[in-house]
């Protein structure tokens, strides 16, 4: 376990056997002919104050997982237990109340802010919607939050288009933070930003976590950013979890072949390393509508054995969990 997790501490968020299937419809009567298994039975826990990184390639289900946790998408099956309540069974109304504690930051700061609203109104909206403040208090809270994320109260009367990508992402963060949440799902918050701006936003997220004792689920495909911010990392492939471990262990002793390949594929910003040994896998990620039998990675795995084609390996282990018949040592 990571140093941040004290013993016998209860998880803040527990995801148990979460599934999200999207029906594939065909024909004039829209008959369901199959399902895209975007998330196919995943379980993990997130402890208070930690950052859980969620990585994988496009289509692996990491964003769907994030959206299912906050019920932007209703899960097909499984439980999401947050502060002893099962979010999967809550009514819309009950869920609404809980959303003050559970916020999400989106990837694209260009499309996630309403272009017709001023920044002041965008930030006051969550407070009004949840009836958490009135009149002057709203004003005070908005000014305060703007300062916290590195903007000023003079920005309140401006519209989103007047801001750069990095500033917009700060506004997105402020909007999530103003409700004083316990858990924030960060869905690729820096992927759309330039390199020099990414660092600013990552630093901000880290500072805020310390200051407000926040818990993050940090979804990303860039491993550098995930490593910088996460205490533990969950690696997903084709709707399933293949490995969960503390950040150091994922990077130093990956146990699933896919994790190892993912790390090795990442281009290293050091030209002296260009002739290092690199494992490059052939082929593409299979379609989640028709995932391979057995271990989903067997079609691309350099170590695949006959059993990998037959039996799906369970996620096993205590602190370092891995779903592989022949984990690396």
């Amino acid at each position: 376990m990571s140093p941040k997790i004290k013993e016998k501490q209860k998880p803040l968020l527990e995801v148990v056997n979460l599934k999200k299937y999207y029906p594939i419809k065909k024909g004039i009567i829209s008959k369901t002919v199959g399902h895209v298994k975007a998330v196919d039975g995943i379980s993990f826990s997130v402890y208070p104050g930690e950052t859980m990184g969620l990585v994988g390639e496009s289509g692996c289900g990491k964003s769907t997982t994030g959206r299912s946790i906050v019920r932007l998408d209703d899960p097909t099956d499984g439980d999401v237990i947050f502060q002893n309540k099962n979010l999967a069974n809550l009514s819309k109304n009950e869920m609404r109340k809980l959303r003050t504690d559970l916020q999400i930051i989106f990837q694209d700061p260009y499309s996630s802010l309403n272009p017709r609203k001023r920044i002041g109104d965008l930030l006051a909206e969550p407070l009004r919607a949840h009836k958490l403040a009135e009149g002057e208090e709203i004003e005070r809270k908005v000014n305060n939050i703007l300062e916290i994320v590195g903007l000023t109260k003079y920005h309140k009367s401006r519209y989103p288009h007047e801001f750069s990508g990095g500033q917009r992402q700060r506004i997105g963060i402020a909007r999530a933070l103003i409700l004083n949440p316990k858990l924030i799902i960060c869905d690729e918050p820096v992927s759309a930003l330039d390199v020099s701006i990414q660092a600013q936003v990552l630093n901000l997220l880290k500072d805020l976590q310390k200051e407000f004792n926040l818990t993050y689920v940090f979804i990303a495909h860039g491993l550098g950013a995930v490593k910088y911010i996460s205490d533990r990392i969950t690696v997903m492939y084709l709707g399933k979890i293949v490995e969960i471990a503390p950040t150091e262990e994922i990077f130093n002793q990956p146990r699933h072949p896919y994790t190892k390949i993912l790390l090795s594929a990442y281009p290293v910003p050091n030209p002296h390393m260009r002739n290092r040994e690199q494992i490059v896998v052939e082929g593409d990620v299979p379609s989640p509508a028709n995932p391979p039998k057995g271990c989903a990675f067997h079609t691309r795995c350099p170590f695949a054995q006959p059993i990998c084609r037959e039996k799906t390996p369970p996620l096993d282990g205590e602190n370092h969990q891995v779903a592989c018949h022949f984990p690396l040592t």
Partner: peptide, 8 residues
């Protein structure tokens, strides 16, 4: 492209 495809 994804990282593993980028490497290819």
């Amino acid at each position: 492209l994804d990282v593993t495809i980028q490497a290819q």
